[in-house]
Nucleic acid binder design. Structure first.
Lengths: 343, 343
DNA sequence: TACGGTTGCCGGAACGTTCCGGCACCCCTT
DNA sequence: AAGGGGTGCCGGAACGTTCCGGCAACCGTA
């Protein structure tokens, strides 16, 4: 005796994971009804739905992503790209896991694109639903290629190229830098110098612009030094030494590059200054080295984990159509005040 | 007039990426022949193969991964799992990118599994060809679940649970720790204390065992302190303070947890000791904080990037059958000698 | 000439899913 | 009783790939 539709449903092959046909047979319904019940999509009666869900649970059914993706052209996967020069920073790790966690919560897979990916022109774009680009530089060829795939793209920080990303999550670096400078002023500093990075990222440029403007607003001379992108501690210390020698009136040093403040600290001390006393020191990126330094160094906490999470969330929303393209979100950052600026 | 097989090949839909049928039509062959030519698999004459490759190149054809995966049950994707407590360390980032880069070179995708993944029991395993687990702890439920999927697993460092991973890439921590202790002895230290982590990872336990053995071999009393897993700088400093107070004969301190050496450094100084002088200091993990400390701190460089790369390579080899299951590889580590141990 | 073996190519089924269209049934209204 | 509309379910095609089996054509030998 055949149950309805049994002719269309082949026998299960033990060993392989169960398919929707197995679920259908177990619930004595058709593949279509099983599919509808599992996704809540068609017209299915309450009892039938229950039966299907129960069967699926009992069999440990999980839909085959490849088959689903083949049928729907939706991969449930997003790619995350990281420029090479960022891959050593503590910031990156937190960002990556922010993305991963949030994406997992939304049922999305995250695949990692390293700089080694897609090197040669003409390589096919990755087969994903969307992209997250961390701090994209217009001069990075991989970034340019990815921006041209036509896929939805969310960038962490603005993109300075001509293509516009589908979504942007940014921090208000202008506000946080201003807050930091105001704090230094409240702690007695009158002439805050900035050691910036030569990088052309939006972040780096914003810090310089804000510092320049603040100095102008407060009628203090602009003192700025630039460090090469991957500068070693020795190079950074040299820059600090020269800075103090050339600008003896400096009473605060703000360092932009990741970890630079910790690197220059010994040099400031060697110059006879007391950090946290007659010379304040702060960093534009917080990391463990800032917390463990002696004295501990005041730093802007960029909240990379939240940043990553918000990128993933925004991309999800764009993919599901809940949020229109062109959305820009601004995340708050925190100023962690420590001994190095408590004058 | 119909070219051979033209009836079986539907017209192309402009806008969608080209399929193998488009390539076949462009080269005036069947789907089968196109597929064979592209993968070098069947019996295809030289000119025909050339024609197919040329057509594919011209059309910008890239095989649809979902379709291929559905047909072959091979996803060309591996998953990378990271325990939560490791996600803030610099080590992790380098490791992740080592894996990503190497996997990309082998044509594999890497998807990230965060701790948030697969939380509840009964969740289906990720649909990938293999797994890389970084420093897996037997008490991590996610690790246990992943070890039970039946998928090939390569672990970075040994796994202390009962399941055996398919492959292991490890560092010779015993050798490197011994080398470090010998170096300290050569620099004049006679009583090296160890501040270890409470973690039960293979790495942590090996360090403790090696230290204990070295002390026994050299007839010096064993001085060991344990720090909680996520210990703050304050906690670590407290441990260092107590250590020096209780064991005044200590003339060298070795710190295992990531970054701990930089955290305790100020405390050692506060106790009236000269780091690099009458007290040597070293770390079992190198990171930027070690390089920027003053004095710079001697550290074992675990070469996380190579480690990640080697994990990916080994998994590739196991997946392709070139390397038998059960393979264990040992990677060299480096000792970066710096001012903190140049007595 | 006949014939076994090789070479080059092809048709079509299968992988597991989604979803369009259709069919039977029931209920309500006229 | 007839008709219209809604409900619950199903058959089967399609997504793009791989690969089994087969079929001509050709070559060499008997």
């Amino acid at each position: 005796m055949a149950t309805p539709g049994s002719a269309a449903v082949p026998a299960p092959r033990p060993g392989s994971p169960p398919t929707i046909a197995d679920v259908a047979r177990a619930a004595a319904v058709s593949k279509t009804t099983a599919s509808d019940a599992l996704r809540g999509h068609g017209r299915v009666s309450g009892p039938t739905r229950e039966a299907v869900l129960e069967a699926a649970r009992r069999l440990g059914y999980a839909p085959n992503r490849s088959a689903r993706s083949l049928r729907t052209s939706v991969t449930d996967t997003v790619a995350l790209y990281f420029p090479e020069f960022l891959t050593s920073a503590e910031y990156s790790m937190a960002f990556v896991f922010g993305v991963a966690e949030r994406a997992a919560g939304a049922g999305l897979n995250v695949t990692l694109l390293s700089s080694g990916h897609l090197p040669q022109h003409g390589t096919a774009p990755p087969q994903v639903d969307g992209l997250v680009l961390c701090d994209p530089a217009p001069e990075d060829p991989v970034v340019r290629r990815l921006m041209n795939t036509g896929l939805p793209v969310v960038t962490a920080e603005r993109y300075a190229g001509d293509q516009q990303p589908t979504g942007v999550v940014r921090s208000d670096h202008e506000a946080s830098m201003t807050e930091l400078l105001d704090h230094l002023r409240d702690s007695g500093a009158r002439r805050p110098a900035l050691i910036a990075s030569e990088a052309t990222s939006d972040w780096s440029l914003t810090l310089q612009r804000t510092h320049a403007r603040w100095c102008a607003d407060h009628g203090v001379p602009l003192v700025l030094r630039k460090a090469p992108v991957g500068a070693t501690p020795e190079v950074l210390r040299g820059i600090a030494r020269d800075l103090l020698a050339q600008e003896p009136g400096t009473d605060a040093v703000v360092c932009a590059p990741d970890g630079a403040a910790a690197a220059v600290l010994p040099e400031l001390r060697a110059a006879g200054r007391t950090v946290g006393g007659d010379l304040l020191l702060a960093s534009c990126v917080d990391c463990s080295a800032m917390r463990t330094a002696e004295p501990a160094i005041t730093a802007i906490d960029l909240r990379p984990r939240s940043m990553g999470a918000e990128c993933a969330r925004l991309l999800c929303e764009i993919l599901s159509g809940r949020t229109p393209p062109g959305t820009v979100r601004t995340l708050p950052v925190a100023l962690n005040i420590r001994a190095s600026t408590r004058a």
